[in-house]
Design a protein around this nucleic acid. Structure first.
Lengths: 203, 203, 203, 203
DNA sequence: TATTAAACGAGACGGTACGTCGCGTCTTGGT
DNA sequence: ACCAAGACGCGACGTACCGTCTCGTTTAATA
């Protein structure tokens, strides 16, 4: 029979992460406690502490487990369409409930927990950025972009305003806003002032 | 004799905020507690709770008290130089110790405390953005920028990548990076793909 | 109005001690926990730890609070009757439920907690012994006992066998057993062997 | 090769008991844990739980294993000398480190663990008492003591004050104190008051 | 100048959760 | 077959702060 009140290893890990997301969605990150996760998951606190060193680390893993394959880029040959599709997907997943608030809270936690910050970067931010950069690089290699096109900076201009709106102004992210950013990235802001004069001295 | 063990009103407010910053710099936001601030400031917890509703609110006020005049734009007539000067100053103040970590932590707190988020926006983010937009508008009105120049979007492109680097990748912000962003904002990314095709359907 | 959900100082102290005895009687010392006392007394754990350093210290105080006036000797002029009365009272209080098991457990705790041992001695054992010795001394001063009568040893012979039965053989203490000890103390064991020969060498 | 990481049966039993005594002497009974014994003995907790039902039972067995032959009485024909020799030996073994503290702690445990109390009595206290009584009986049978000599009571008067001092006042037991008790047992306390009056009514 | 009410320090209090320890049970894998 | 190793649920530990609540004690404004 499959009664099996509690089992081992991966079993418990998976149950705890699922409970973390559930409870996090219900009561929010601030009120989430390891105590409560343990109670609801039918696990002991020790079992949680054996695997994760903090509430943030637990939530991070729980969220990452949702996205095992990652938010991948389609490769239709149409650069802008591909970027748009991927960014729409990311914004839809991370910019709205149920996962948006938890994702935001996690980034919040990263602000005073360097370990969370590092792991978040290594396991989510950097891989995501790398995919964006790789897609842009393909386009540049195919001559769709100028050889001088700054891949890193382009990635920052695509991501930065979205995170700014997500984290700072806390307005709802829309597809329309994504489009505006894509447009300005490739079309520019229009006629421009003199910029070619050198800045004072480096930082 | 100037022993004066404890005085009133603004006196206490000021002492508590100063202590908050001091202690916050020493032990970090995560370990900062109202209990400890009260003890070090020689104030009672009641006195703190009378004025602030949470640790975040206290820190927010404490940080804002540092910046009473605000980070203002010079108005030399040279748009890029003015923007550069102001952004350098902001990056230097908020992107480095001693206040950078506290500022970051506060933004972190805003991710799960809507009241902090709102106050932070009203009292710091929005005023700052308004100044940037005002400076850009002046330039547009003077014909230095195209009449179609999107002021809000420009502000987002100036701020977004900086906050992204501050909060997400957590790399050190440099003046050089500011310059690259200013450059791309006004000079664009270079030759571009077809973008004028319509996006699928709105969000 | 006497609603007053929780009050101060002596109030809480008294409620906690009463709860300790109650709960101790219900579930026994071994299963008694500070956690449970706090919960039932409607107190926080801190409040208990503020006053007592351990479960044993709490129980000790709780038991002592029962016996504020002490188990005093009557002074009828009849030494044996006075001793008998007092010992009967002590045996009845400490040798039976509800307090006997807790008293025994406390002595048990004293075996691995020197602080409990010391306090128990100072606040209960020694005062009790002093009263016995004082009563014997009165009798000796009045010529009812030989001038060479060893007061301390007499006290030990009165107490020792009772504690032995209480703690070691764990048989029920009876008044009849008290009488046998009183009798042997004052009447001796009967004809005796040669004892006046010196022991080998001192320990 | 004598590496033999873990062996069977009596082997393990013996190693565990030895470790128990070692660790008990080092850190005291209160801090002794089955967890720690298992770790130090290189045994698994299961192996310990297979043989003993509690920490107390384990310590009891471990201590008893020290005393396989028992503290036996010499039989020189001189009653007092024989008693003295045996009691000296008992006091020296159980009244001082290294085993005194553990023995005391075990008696402490017996106060809230009836199973320990029962086993302690059956396997140590009663056999020891029986030997004392047997020695006294031999003397009585040989006419060295009055036919009315109360063997049980004599045993209690010999043991009681010693346990009282060991467990209650926690003073060091000395040979001199043993001598005083032996003396009073056989020589009495000196001139005595009227005791032959009947006590009130039985308990 | 004396009175009084507000603001204050100090800190006790009921709570919640922390992170840790050890319990006694269990499963796994090695000898 | 027995073992070590150790994961697991559980209960309690003792601690840290939370936010609320008396307590006197200043202190400054009123009478």
């Amino acid at each position: 029979m499959t009664d099996t009140p509690h089992r081992r290893g991966a079993d418990r890990t998976e149950a705890i992460m699922r409970t973390t997301l559930e409870l996090g969605q219900e009561i929010g990150y601030a009120k989430l406690s390891i105590e409560a996760v343990a109670a609801r998951a039918g696990a002991s606190k020790q079992t949680i502490y054996r695997r994760w060193s903090s509430k943030g680390a637990l939530l991070l893993d729980s969220l990452l487990s949702l996205n095992e394959p990652g938010l991948d880029y389609p490769e239709t040959g149409d650069l802008v369409a591909d970027l748009r599709a991927q960014i729409y997907a990311a914004v839809d997943l991370l910019g709205r409930p149920p996962f948006g608030p938890l994702f935001k809270a996690l980034i919040g936690e990263a602000q005073h927990d360097p370990q969370i910050a590092a792991t978040l970067n290594e396991r989510f931010i950097a891989p995501q950025a790398d995919k964006t950069i790789a897609r842009l690089k393909t386009a540049r290699d195919q001559g769709q972009l100028s050889p001088a096109f700054d891949l890193d900076l382009a990635m920052a201009i695509l991501s930065g305003p979205l995170y700014f709106q997500l984290l700072i102004t806390q307005e709802q992210l829309t597809h329309e806003y994504v489009d505006r950013i894509l447009n300005v990235l490739f079309a520019g802001m229009g006629p421009r002032p003199q910029i070619d004069r050198e800045p004072p001295e480096a930082q």
